[in-house]
C-alpha cells in the first residue's frame, strides 16, 4: 500500500505537476515548454510499463514534432510584448468544478473496482508490434496514412487561403502579407 502511494506521488510529480503548469501558466511559451515536460514524463511512464518503442516514438513525434510546431505557432501568432491574458475568475471556478466532478466520478469507479485479476503480463516486442501493424491492423494503418495526407493538405490550404475581411474590420498587422509569402 505504501509502495503504491509512493509510486502514485512519483507519477503525479512526473506528469501531473507539469500538466498543472500547462493549464495555469500565463505565458504561452512557458505553457508549451511545460507541455514538453509533461510529454517527456509520460514517455518515462511508458518505458516503466515495458513499452520502450512507444516511449521513443513519444519523444520523437511529440516532443520533437508537436512541441516544435506549437512553438512555431506561438511565435507566428503572438506579439511578445510581455502582455499576458487574464483568466476569467467565474470561468475558473466553473472549470475547476467540472474537472473535479469528472475526477471524483472516475476515481470513485477506479477505487471501487476489483482490479486484482489484472496482473502484469509480458508486453509485445517491437517486432510483434510491427507484425501486428502490417498484418492485423493493415487497413487501419493505411487509413491513418490517408488521414495524415488529408491533414497536410487541409493545413496548407487553410494557411495559404486569403479570406476577404468581414465588413468594417480593420486588416490586422499580419494580414498584409502577399499571397504565397512566408508569414
Amino acid at each position: 500500500m505504501t509502495a503504491e502511494l509512493g509510486f502514485g506521488v512519483f507519477a503525479f510529480l512526473l506528469v501531473g505537476f507539469p500538466a498543472l503548469r500547462v493549464v495555469t501558466s500565463r505565458d504561452l511559451v512557458r505553457t508549451v515548454l511545460w507541455l514538453a515536460v509533461t510529454l517527456l514524463g509520460t514517455a518515462v511512464l511508458f518505458a516503466l510499463l515495458h513499452a520502450p518503442f512507444l516511449a521513443g516514438v513519444q519523444v520523437l513525434t511529440y516532443v520533437g514534432g508537436v512541441v516544435t510546431l506549437m512553438v512555431f505557432g506561438v511565435m507566428v501568432t503572438h506579439k511578445h510584448d510581455g502582455t499576458t491574458v487574464a483568466i476569467d475568475g467565474a470561468n475558473r471556478v466553473r472549470g475547476a468544478l467540472a474537472a473535479l466532478a469528472f475526477f471524483g466520478v472516475v476515481a470513485f469507479a477506479i477505487v471501487r473496482t476489483d482490479l486484482s485479476s489484472l496482473t502484469p503480463v509480458e508486453t509485445p516486442s517491437t517486432q510483434d508490434l510491427a507484425m501486428a501493424l502490417l498484418d492485423r491492423y493493415l487497413i487501419a494503418f493505411e487509413v491513418a496514412s490517408v488521414l495524415l495526407l488529408a491533414a497536410i493538405i487541409s493545413a496548407v490550404v487553410l494557411a495559404r487561403r486569403r479570406d476577404p475581411l468581414p465588413e468594417g474590420a480593420e486588416p490586422a498587422d499580419g494580414a498584409r502579407l502577399q499571397e504565397g509569402s512566408v508569414p
Partner: peptide, 26 residues
C-alpha cells in the same frame, strides 16, 4: 499494486486537461 495508482494519475491528467479546456482563452 501500482495499476490503481497509474489509473488515478491518468484520470488526474485528463481532469487537468478538462480544466484547461474550460478556462483558457487563447
Amino acid at each position: 499494486m501500482t495499476l490503481r495508482a497509474l489509473l488515478l494519475v491518468a484520470t488526474a491528467l485528463f481532469s487537468i486537461g478538462i480544466y484547461g479546456l474550460l478556462t483558457r482563452r487563447q
